[in-house]
Design a protein around this nucleic acid. Structure first.
Lengths: 139, 139
DNA sequence: CTTAATACTTGATGATGTCAACTATAGAGT
DNA sequence: ACTCTATAGTTGACATCATCAAGTATTAAG
């Protein structure tokens, strides 16, 4: 079970390359929606109808809480996100998408998940295999 | 059967999720090497013994040329990268890793390609399959 | 009730990124 | 040659991203 860390046939290095490739074209995709990469990340994380405390967002983004304040400030000023006080704990503020934010998020996911041309090189069967394997990676 | 996977729309959203997951933990990994995410990206792109013109780097990063100037300034001031004039065209400056830069790059790739725990859920055979499929995506 | 811990904000600072203007070189066409 | 245009890189102005330290408000613990 433990054996293949150094002997995994290079699967992870390939994913790293894929990661950097995607990282490079996120800015342009974001710019088309008048967003920054970080804002895309936030929009991606807040699902419609699933409000999220700011602290949890900071945790998921793995960044400082004060950074989230600024990010949300800008998103809120554009009417994409709302801060709501939490009923349970008056310290926490919960974030939820506005209708506009929901629509923009849908548009973003649509563009991001528009498969690149290279994906068409795979057969349907290979794609299913890929889905099965990736699902297990994402638990 | 929440969704149809008769087409390619299943695999890419998963890769997008994987992408954002990795995006979130790059800052910490970078910080351990006293680097920023962007600097990691640059270091990842300049291979030892394969000098790269600044313009090409800007193209691959899909960012403005002036941004590369600053990135390289900081990397050069830390002795990780060198600017060299190009013999063929005196306008271009070619970037190459210093020995220190090469070592740090190796360390970075080592850490980045240290497979996450989730990868161990896959059998060797599944990992090979993943490698085969990803190679075709990246070729 | 006092004290400590948590959630978020503020202000300072550096890094990242874009744009416009600039220098220097290259590559035309005339 | 000589102008005209395009390209490679830098600089300066400015917004965003990100961290840290300090501060406020609230919660929780002793």
């Amino acid at each position: 079970m433990k054996q293949t860390d150094t002997d995994d046939c290079g699967a992870w290095p390939l994913l790293v390359r894929l990661f950097f490739t995607q990282r490079a074209n996120l800015p342009q995709l974001a710019a088309e929606l008048q967003l920054s990469p970080a804002q895309c990340h936030v929009l991606h994380l807040i699902e419609p109808g699933r409000p999220m405390p700011m602290g949890q967002l900071a945790g998921t983004l793995a960044c400082d809480a004060s950074n989230v304040t600024g990010l949300v400030d800008r998103l809120e000023s554009r009417g994409l996100v709302r801060r709501r006080p939490s009923a349970a704990d008056r310290r926490v503020k919960v974030l939820e998408l506005t209708p506009t934010g929901s629509r923009l998020r849908a548009l973003l996911l649509d563009r991001m998940t528009a498969p690149p041309a290279t994906l068409r090189r795979l057969s349907v069967r290979e794609q299913r295999t890929l889905v099965r394997i990736l699902s297990r990676l994402l638990e």
